[in-house]
Amino acid sequence: MAILTLTINGEHVSGKDDESLLDIARQHDVHIPTLCHLDGLSDVGACRLCLVEVEGQSKLFPACTTKPQEGMVIRTDTERLKKYRRTIIELLASEGNHQCAVCVVNNHCELQNLAYDVDLQYVRFPYLYPKKELDATHEDFVIDRNRCVLCTRCVRVCHEVEGAHTWDIAGRGIDCTIIADMNQPWGTSASCTSCGKCVRVCPTGALFEKGQTVAEMEKQRDFLKYIVHARQKREWVAEQIEEE
């Protein structure tokens, strides 16, 4: 492990070589919007919201999966980046069926908050109104694919933390969809342990507890840090996590 120095938005900062640009930015109070990233899960760079500019490079880099290099000069808030982030949110909004007014996570939704963050004023793209499946076959939980943004947090938490690997992705491009086991009703899944981690990490109302009503569901995601810390460090300390 080595300490590197780099520049973020004109400020000189330092970070470890095994950290991501996102980690380093956050340590220095630089806010970069994220959606697929969640502390405690591996990063896949799927949502592209955390793209940053690196001087001397024409392409953009996702901050969550990019490692620092000595002398890197990074910008996180240029007009170009802001425009791209807005566009990403617009595309997400137009690609699903997001009806905030009657959604279980209304007012507690990461997608909704991001729309505010990027100052989403208007969706320029035509709404696709895709026909998506709502699967309520599980005893305790529901997956409403109308609200899914394919961040794959559920896939990762199920595989990496719970170890069940119930969730996966099927299809390509616009047809991508989250499936349980061999693309079967969730309630019939043999691998699902009904632990509920996927529900808690889901950023939108795509995964929720059965019986929840409009604007009622608030997801607590801190449990993940605690579990991951306990597993890696063999320490079961809630306090320490809270302090962080």
Partner: peptide, 11 residues
């Protein structure tokens, strides 16, 4: 029938 507003109205 939508919850979005036009750019001009929002601004």
């Amino acid at each position: 029938f939508c919850e979005e507003m036009s750019i001009h109205t929002r601004s």
